[in-house]
Design a protein around this nucleic acid. Structure first.
Lengths: 226, 226
DNA sequence: TCTTTTTGGATTGTGAACAATCTGTGTTAT
DNA sequence: ATAACACAGATTGTTCACAATCCAAAAAGA
């Protein structure tokens, strides 16, 4: 099974955004990326075109590609879309989750707990998003799962931009309660808890502060998958 | 206001797919597109990368780009996603639609009626999809609207592939009843009618028949927007 | 000192040539 | 006659060089 390099570039950048290693507004220079991935600019160019289509990168003609900076309006729309999509995903999960799926969710909760204790923010951010992505996979609707991945990525950008100090991560006990409802096959309760959870996340952001700064590219992309 | 050529290429192809002028499986040769749009292959290449990200084009390494051919499973997932998204859009529309919006919808219904009479299939297909896209715009959530555009495009591919003879288009009286419910601000009824409408469309397709043929590219892309 | 202009470096966009891969056709051997 | 092989044409992938554009710092003028 061969992996086209283009896919690796796209996934690496998406991962970095999801983990909040790449912050909104960071310039994605073509030369810099060519050097980092040891490839030619044409491949970088196509990768950036794909990322632009995913709406996580803004492409300004003659000026380059930048990690997207969602506006407060975007944030509202994105979270409304997440509630719409995750509600349906949740229903599918309640109906389709096997015992193995639920065990995997519990294991994930355990890891989230551990990461929270260890005070390792990038890992905690990744796991927190991972819970939602995991639900997407268990729901067995790749179309919805893909949109959810896109939206959680953009949510990471939003949280990185606008989160007020503390409440920046999903409360993992909310995740745990959702798994409980899934296990007891209580569709309405699971959906209610998930909707509430998303509203809590959204409530944890505020748009008062100033725009944050852009960071160095190469340092942020370290930890690229092989 | 300048328009990058790349955007024109992508939009032209998306329009052609939405109107069912481009059918599933059609090969999108780089040279052919370069000639059609009078540009170099690099721009075509980037456009195809974007279309691949939109999931309306499949890219096979060393073999070229083809208009995507959704599977029956894809169809089920896509229509479930449409119900999830359009339900929320519909709620927004009921709450936000101005009198002007409703007048525009009525005008659209009139055009649909006229097109159905004139037996002009491409126009009828475009208008039928246009109704749903219009709801997306009125709902004032660009994130949901964009997903809806993607999903309706893929729906066009599905209907082109699997529709059984007749019931291939939206029944426009269902559209009319939805507008009625919107105008009387009956949220639940509008959502119910829309959900039912989508189920009717999905019920109008069957996966028994053989795969259809691929067509000529240049003829299908005629009618490119300026 | 502040504003405007100019200029140099860097980055993005474009184009064409070359290499690698695939598809279909025709030949040859069993 | 069928199957395997080989070759030719066409298509995709890659590379490199050059043109156009933008940005920032330096220089000139008020």
């Amino acid at each position: 099974m061969d992996k086209p390099l283009e896919t690796i570039i796209v996934d690496s950048i998406l991962d970095a955004i999801a983990d909040q290693r790449l912050r909104a507004g960071t310039k994605l220079g073509e030369q810099a990326l060519s050097d980092l991935f040891a490839c030619n600019r044409a491949q970088v160019r196509r990768s950036l075109a794909a990322l632009t289509a995913y709406q996580v990168v803004d492409h300004l003609p003659n000026r380059g590609a930048y990690v997207a900076t969602p506006t407060p309006d975007d944030a509202r729309d994105i979270f409304q879309a997440r509630r719409a999509i995750e509600t349906v995903i949740c229903r599918n999960v309640v109906r389709l989750a096997t015992q193995g799926d639920i065990a995997a969710l519990r294991e994930h909760l355990r890891q989230e707990q551990a990461a929270k204790g260890s005070d390792n923010r990038p890992v905690a951010v990744r796991l927190s998003r991972g819970f939602h992505v995991m639900l997407g996979r268990i729901g067995r609707n790749p179309v919805l799962a893909r949109y959810l991945e896109e939206l959680t990525m953009r949510s990471s950008l939003i949280i990185g931009l606008y989160a007020k100090g503390h409440a920046t991560l999903c409360a993992e006990d909310e995740h745990a309660r959702i798994v409980d409802a899934i296990e007891s096959r209580d569709e309405a309760e699971a959906q209610r808890l998930l909707d509430e959870h998303l509203r809590h996340i959204e409530a944890g952001i505020s748009f008062d502060d100033d725009k944050p700064q852009t960071g160095a590219l190469s340092a942020m992309l370290r930890g690229i998958r092989d």
